[in-house]
Write a protein that binds this DNA or RNA. Structure first.
Lengths: 347, 347
DNA sequence: GTCAGCGTCGCAATCGCTTGCGCAATCGAT
DNA sequence: ATCGATTGCGCAAGCGATTGCGACGCTGAC
């Protein structure tokens, strides 16, 4: 606007491809080809361009390139809560795998709300991400299709999936995991077993609850529903739920938590009541937190490698991006029971 | 290439601004202005454009816009380890604040290595991020300047800062925090106090160690250095360090850990030796993990809101982006001692 | 001496959006 | 009726890269 601005406007602009071309004494097209190793170039020109680029410390503009090539080498990552240990670990795993393939990750947190997830997907799509890694929070397949309508962007779901949407998915061995847990509990002689089920918006919540019922049935223990509690996926969410359970006329003698955080909430609630685990109540959970054996009592859980699920999902995704449409691929990562003391096993 | 491809190449391309303009019967410029609320437009045309956009489900291309406007509404976030609870929480906080201002975050993990950090910064800068949020891992001010040379991209450091680099920083109250910790320990009668210092590549490591020495001096306890141990910032890193400490001819009676993870490692090492805390060894730490009171023994620590540091950093950054260069601003987030049992306090 | 063929490189068009500038129409005032 | 000031909108030039196509010079064969 003002004259003063104009005078100071000669700020150092980073070198552009045209600058490199000029210094090297060639056209921009040739410079581009030299830098990308495309096309037939005389060795001398190639060298000249490379040197010019080095001299100018040339860094190509990713956004200009993206506009032209229609690919961003960026993938979107959307989860219900990045601060959650599981998602953070998954992110780390995915990040590692993606980086190896030259992809960057743009992160969005859906805040455990469908609306947030929709907004996140929109934003990501607007940015023309090359792929999507998502742990959904209860978006219906229809809604998901609506939002992504028109974009062919490959998407792989992990942890919490939308049935047969996207190009693939990686889930946990929910059913076997829960079966392991309740099986172990009945071995210890329990039959009044409760479940802290988390939210039923995520498929992991649904599947684990379903698996719980199935396992109970298989062991001949009637699942009346009075021992089932849903709650938010957080320590705070599990506390009141645990109290409700404990206030029942005939309270459970054992509880399986659908996630580590829920187990922590259960633990906290027991503290409040000065209950002693595992004598007053046995506790086991899905997810093995890294500090599981430092708790009191050490926590029995089914564990798995959260990083691996991120990595697996990312791997699936970059394959899909590269090879275009293949068959839908579902991988599931195995779980393993680690017995500690909260279930009643000797220390 | 082949004829078949040509026939199928009429794939659904999402609507462009030009399409909207055509449908609305106006020029692209007008459409743009209508959509962005810039310039004086007749109400009727504006409405027509809006309707056309809605009808076509128009979504502007973020990359095209970025190319033209030279701003991406994206900020880079680089930390030594996203899977770490602290950084994950900080990320969450930053993410929240940024989203409110319309910014997206592109995430990079430096893997606790300077080289990784440099690569991350380069990539981010290539993407023309509007700002940078970084918890550095020992990059020198000179190296940092080298890498970011030429870009005026505002950068705020958090947790671990590069002295006076960037436009601002948010750090923890390291000195007061550590002083609180050792003060509390001497109140309990300890004088052989050790520190698990973490890595000295991060300023938090340096400052906390320095604060430890100062506090010891202030309390008249000679800091000989035999009670200081550096190690990687992880549970695994702290275990051998703890053993070394415990193997000393005159082992410490108390240890302060520079982070929660280190405390966990210390705890694990004590388990291995069947030591009972706090009787055999008192333990306190910087960082209050959310499961701190579920450990055995419950952990005494100085706590703070990790999310707040992310949020504060993001807020600072957004202001810097908007207002251009203001003065360098350093904010520090307060800490608070939470006494539990690991220090020797009654439960 | 011509010309086909090959190896190198430049022209110019895009990618989708923003924006300075200027033209045309409308309006109020004289 | 004429003229300057608005108001409303379109033209065209970019932003910084990639790429199909054609031009140009040179070599070798006839």
């Amino acid at each position: 606007m003002s004259v003063r601005d104009a005078s100071s406007s000669r700020r150092k602009r980073s070198a552009t491809l045209a600058d490199v071309a000029e210094v090297a004494g060639v056209s921009a097209s040739t410079a581009s080809r030299a830098l990308n190793g495309r096309g037939e170039l005389a060795e001398a020109t190639r060298a000249a361009v490379l040197e010019a680029a080095a001299q100018l410390d040339f860094r190509p503009s990713a956004v200009a390139r993206s506009l032209r090539t229609r690919t961003t080498f960026t993938v979107g990552f959307v989860v219900p809560d990045v601060a959650s240990p599981f998602y953070a670990a998954a992110l780390k795993g995915a990040q590692g795998a993606l980086e190896e393939s030259g992809y960057r990750v743009m992160l969005m947190d859906s805040e455990q709300q469908a609306a947030g997830e929709v907004a996140a997907l929109r934003t990501l799509l607007d940015h023309q991400v090359d792929g999507l890694l998502v742990a959904t929070t209860g978006l219906s397949a229809r809604r998901f299709a609506e939002v992504t309508r028109g974009s062919e962007t490959p998407c792989v779901f992990f942890d919490s999936v939308i049935a047969r949407s996207g190009v693939g998915s990686v889930a946990l061995d929910n059913d076997p995991g829960i079966r392991l847990l309740v099986g172990h509990l009945v071995e210890h002689g329990h039959d009044r077993i409760a479940i802290l089920a988390g939210s039923l918006a995520e498929t992991s919540g649904i599947e684990r609850l379903r698996a719980f019922r199935k396992a109970m049935r298989r062991h001949g223990v009637p699942a009346t529903g009075q021992y089932e509690r849903r709650c938010r996926w957080s320590v705070e969410g599990a506390i009141p739920a645990t109290h409700e359970l404990l206030d029942l006329p005939s309270p459970p003698t054992a509880v399986v938590a659908s996630s580590a955080e829920l187990a922590l909430g259960c633990l906290a609630a027991c503290r409040e009541r000065r209950l002693s685990l595992p004598d007053d109540l046995a506790l086991v959970c899905f997810d093995d937190p890294y500090f599981g054996d430092l708790l009191e009592p050490p926590l029995t859980a089914v564990g798995y490698e959260p990083r691996e699920v991120g990595r697996a999902a990312a791997t699936l995704l970059v394959e899909a991006i590269k090879d275009g449409d293949g068959p839908y691929r579902a991988v599931t990562v195995p779980v393993e029971l680690v017995r500690r003391r909260s279930c009643g096993c000797p220390g």
